[in-house]
Each structure stands twice: as structure tokens, then as C-alpha cells.
Simulated scan of single mutants.
Amino acid sequence: MCDQCDSGTLGRRGLLMGGLALSLAVPFGGRAFAQTTATPPASPDEAIQRLMDGNARYVANTPNNADHSVTRNTRAAGQSPFAAIVACADSRVVPELIFDQAPGDLFVVRVAGNFLSEDGIASLEFAAAVLGVQAVMVLGHTSCGAIRATIDSIRDNELPPGHLPSLVNAIRPAVYNAMQQNPEDLLAAATAENAVYNARIAAETGPILSDMNESGTVKSIAGVYDIATGKVAFL
């Protein structure tokens, strides 16, 4: 029997997620919906396809979103992004450009090394339960300095100075996983593994994200952006 419905009424999971969204929305000023002309995706798969299509336009240099002033006034009324992107803080990685999306379409969480900390997970929970994003993508990129620094730290058996060890320690598990495969290009392999590793965290961390991924409300995926070509490889 469907656990979402029973004679037209919400099941336990539906009530839980509805109450969760409401409880999260209240302290943040209520659930805010964007005033946008874009039609919301019908499913997580459609949201992912929208990202893929946008990247294809970016690579071909035929963007749809060139005038960001068109909906500036309506965006002030709220937001309703269709996807969340966990991206590196690298200045060359700009998700709205890479996926050819307008302001308000993407909820972006950025940190050097595109890994998920407790704060990042909380941000995704807000994006999914309150704002209604349907897809979460962890986006790595070529020539990532944070990944390279982690590889160097492991090989040299030495931590970098300052607060940089917090980045290295967060990325280290993915680099170890990549090392076990003995790849020809460790940087590329570790970059892909780090994206996949953190996409798995986004899918399996409970209770909010794991429940929404399990029910099919949200889908978490990984990708790697090639800075030289502009292409995103969806993993």
C-alpha cells in the first residue's frame, strides 16, 4: 500500500515532511516562492535534464540567460530554485553560467574542494525541505587546487598551515578511495571520486535528505566541470 496516501489523506511520511518544511520555513520568514516565468521541473530527472541542456548551451555559447535585469524586481518577492549545486569556491567555477540558469534558479553552496560539512548539509536541507529543489549536484572541476593540496599532503605526510587542514581532512577520504584504484591521473580520479563521495553524503544523510532521496522527491548526483572545454561530465 502506498505510504504517501490512504483514501486521499497524507501518510506518515507526507505529514512528517510537510510539518518539517513548515517548521523550517517559519524561522526563515516563511516559505518564499520566486516570481519567475520558468516552469518548474515535473520531476528530479527533468531538473537534471535542465542542467544538462543548460550546460550544452553554455558550451555552444548560445545562452538563454544573458539579461539578468529582466526579472530583478520579481525576484525580490522570493525564491524557488529547482536545483542545488555544491560547487568549489574556485573563481573559474560559476554554476549559473556553467548551466545557463538565471538568478534564482540555482541554490549554490560553495567551499574550496566542494565537500559537504555540517553547515553545507544544513543548507541543502533548507534548499530541499523549504525551497523545494528537486536535484542536488556536487560539482567538482579540473585543476582543483584543494584536491591537489590534499594529494600533496598525503604524499608528503604533512599538513598545510593555518586552517587549511580542515579542507584537507574533509577531502582526504575521497583521495584515499581514488588511490586504491591506482589511476594514471590521480588528480582527475580524486576529483571525480570526491564529487561522487559527497553526492552520496547528500543522498544518505538523514533524516531530511535521505528521506527525500528515498522517496524520489530529490535526486543527488555528481559531476565534474572541465574548465578548458566548459563541459560537465555527469557521473
Score class of each variant (00 low, 15 high):
M52T: 13
L116D: 02
C144W: 01
V232H: 11
G29I: 11
G11D: 09
D100I: 14
P183H: 13
G8C: 12
A233W: 07
S166A: 07
T205R: 04
V138D: 09
K219H: 08
I147S: 10
N213R: 00
T37L: 13
L124S: 01
G78A: 07
A112G: 09
R31P: 02
G223N: 13
V138R: 05
V59A: 15
V70T: 15
P173D: 06
T191E: 09
D53C: 08
A135S: 04
R92E: 13
L116F: 03
N114D: 01
N65L: 08
T74A: 15
D119P: 03
T74R: 14
M137K: 03
A228H: 14
G145F: 00
A112S: 03
Y58N: 15
L20F: 10
R31A: 02
L159T: 01
A38N: 04
L15T: 08
N182C: 11
E118G: 10
V175Y: 02
D211N: 08
I151F: 09
L131T: 00
T37W: 07
V93K: 09
P81C: 00
F33R: 15
D100W: 06
N157W: 07
E46P: 04
V26Y: 05
G54K: 13
N182F: 10
R92I: 09
A189D: 09
